[in-house]
């Protein structure tokens, strides 16, 4: 009994019948209401992908890992979300994106998430931004070594506690949708975007520029990769969207916002986003990950 008390005493104490007294079974709905704390305030994640209409290969890769723990005060919420859009002849695009995603996910899981689960938290940890940079550099090396001629964009978000740390190369994007606003938090490493930023190209010119798909940074393009790495507080009462250019290049920002805010949940939103890109012609592979963060 002592053991039982120890195990169940705290949470189920009210429900444990006193010795020798028979009780009628409880109505399950009552039990739920009485004993289970509502899980509002949870992070919800959706993801969807499509090869599109015009392409025969899917060169995009997605990765989602989301962790919650209850009852353990010291274990924070965590998550790892990655979008990669591969490019290169033959099958090298799809190989490049999947190799990179695996490489980044493995490194970040090992050195941040597994580290988090270890009993001794004092072991010397690599700073998260350094870790993110190392993870993307390793992915770069893996693609250079294994997938000659291949390359990929990669946008990774590591969520730990109250902060997210982003690693970004290429022109996949991360958006924050909050209070009816859509804000791109990554910077496209594309030539036309750069020329547009400098006022050398107008947005409408950029849309039809022959070099609009030319990136000046991508994973798999040589030894010295410069990675954008930064951290932000988690966006409260807001959405974080990661997507490839098959979505953002086709569906306007305001339409993305409308779909995200009118969908029942992040999964439904991702599916509708992908449908919407296909309805607009689906010229490229489409990938979307949507994370909804609750209010504080």
């Amino acid at each position: 009994m002592d053991l039982f008390k120890r195990i169940f005493g705290k949470k189920a104490g009210a429900g444990a019948p006193p010795d020798g007294v028979k009780t009628a079974p409880l109505d399950p709905t009552t039990v739920t209401r009485a004993l289970v704390k509502p899980l509002q305030g949870r992070i919800l994640v959706g993801m969807a992908q499509s090869v599109g209409i015009e392409r025969t290969h899917n060169e995009d890769s997605l990765f989602v890992l989301q962790g919650n723990a209850a009852g353990l005060e010291t274990l924070p919420e965590f998550g790892l979300y990655i979008v990669a859009d591969g490019m290169g002849g033959h099958r090298s695009g799809e190989v490049a994106s999947s190799v990179s995603v695996r490489s980044v996910a493995r490194r970040l899981c090992e050195d941040s998430i597994l580290h988090l689960l270890s009993i001794d938290p004092l072991a010397d940890a690599i700073p998260l931004q350094d870790l993110m940079r190392i993870a993307l550099e390793e992915a770069n090396q893996a693609v250079v070594d294994r997938v000659p001629g291949g390359g990929t964009t990669l946008t990774a978000v590591l969520h730990l506690g109250h902060q997210i740390t982003l690693g970004h190369v290429g022109d996949s994007r991360a958006y924050v949708l909050k209070d009816g606003e859509v804000r791109t938090i990554t910077r496209d490493h594309s030539l036309v975007k750069r020329l547009e930023e400098l006022g050398q190209l107008r947005p409408e010119e950029a849309e039809v520029h022959p070099q609009r798909n030319v990136l000046y940074r991508a994973i798999g393009q040589g030894a010295n990769l410069e990675v954008d790495v930064f951290s932000l507080p988690i966006p409260r009462d807001a959405f974080l969207l990661l997507c490839s250019d098959g979505l953002w290049g086709v569906v306007p920002d305001q339409e993305i916002r409308r779909i995200v805010t009118t969908s029942e949940n992040p999964q439904a939103a991702c599916e509708r986003l992908v449908d919407s890109a296909n309805a607009a012609g689906g010229p490229d592979n489409i990938s979307a990950v949507l994370i909804s963060f609750p209010p504080e």
Partner: peptide, 24 residues
């Protein structure tokens, strides 16, 4: 949400305030 402080180990640290994870 990020803590910043220096140390005699020649380093300025940035830590996530909730769990103490080193950001940079």
């Amino acid at each position: 949400g990020i803590l910043y402080f220096g140390s005699m180990d020649w380093t300025l640290y940035a830590l996530e305030a909730e769990g103490g994870y080193q950001i940079w």
